[in-house]
Amino acid sequence: MNYVIEKADLPNWLDLLCKKARVVVPAENDLGASCFQEFKGQQLFLEARTDFSPRKFLLPAVEKMFFFRKKNFSYRIEPLGSKEPTILFGVRPCDTHALHALDELFIRFLGEDQYYSTRRKNTVLIALLCNKPCSNGFCTSMGTSRPVDHDILFAERETDFVVSPVSEKGKNLLHKNFFKQTKDPLPEQQLNCEKELLTEDIEDNLYNNFNHPVWKQESERCLSCTACTQVCPTCYCYSSDDCFEFGSANSERARFRDSCQLQRFSEIAGGHVFRKSRESRLRQFVLHKLSYYKKHHNLQLCIGCGRCIDTCPVKIDLTEIANTIQREALK
C-alpha cells in the first residue's frame, strides 16, 4: 500500500520526527552548496542531487575512538562512539548504493566496524527518486538509478509525494495525520544520463592498463586538491592519530578522513613515499573505485553520481579516463 503526503505538510512531519531522532535533510549551506544538514526548519533542497553526499553522517570527517585517561601512572582506555538514532531524508538512489557499498566493507566483509555499524544500524534511510538526470551523473551505466536498502521511498509529483514504505522501521514513521493511503503507483521514471561509462570487464581492463599513457596525460593538470575524495560518497579511507591534552596526561585517539591524493597517504616512517607522482595517485583513486573494490567485494565502489567530475577544478573526468582505456580494450 502506498501513501501520499502534501508538499506543504512535509516540514511539519519532519518536525515531528525530530522528537524521536536526529533528522538529516538536504539543504543549502551559507555558501550556496547543497549538502545534508540537521533539520531545524530550514528550506529543503529537493531540486536535484546535492553537491555533498550524506557520507559524513555515517563516516564523520573526524571521529573520536577512545579516550586514554592516565591515573597513577596507568592508562584507562574508554571507548567512545555514537548511538544517536538518525533519520536520513531525501537520499538519492545513487547515495543509497554508496551506503550499500560501505556496508559491505564495514559490516559484512571483515566483521563489523563498531563505529560505522552502530551508526548505520541506528539510521533510517528515506530515499527520494530522481526526476531528471543530473549534469555529470552516469548512474544508468552503474546500475544505481534505483535505490537499495532504503526504509521508505519518496517520489515527487506536482503538489505531493507518493510514498512507499519498505521496511517495518520505515512504516512506523508514516504518521496518520500527514500520510493518506492511496492506490497510485510510484511514478515511473526513465532516467537517461548523458554521460556513459563502459563497464564491461572494467575491473580487469583498467588494472591491465596500469601504465597506459592516459594516466599521465590526465594527471598532468591535477592539483592534488583532494576535492574528488572530499565529495565522493564512498571515499572511506582514514588515518588515525592521538590528540594530547596538555596539562593532563590524557589523550584521545581519533580517526579522520584522509585522501589518497596526498603524498602523505603513502608515506612511511623514514620518509619514503610510495605514490610520489600525481599519476600514481590519480590512478589509485580511479582503480580503487572501479577495479580493486569490485575484485574484493563484487560491488562497484563508484556509484556514478558524477560529483568528482562536477567538483574538479581542472575538469578531470573519471569516465573519460576509464572510457579511453575501455574503448581500446573492448575493441
Partner: peptide, 8 residues
C-alpha cells in the same frame, strides 16, 4: 579498512 597499505 583504512586502505593505506593498498598495493594493486
Amino acid at each position: 579498512y583504512c586502505a593505506h597499505c593498498n598495493i594493486g
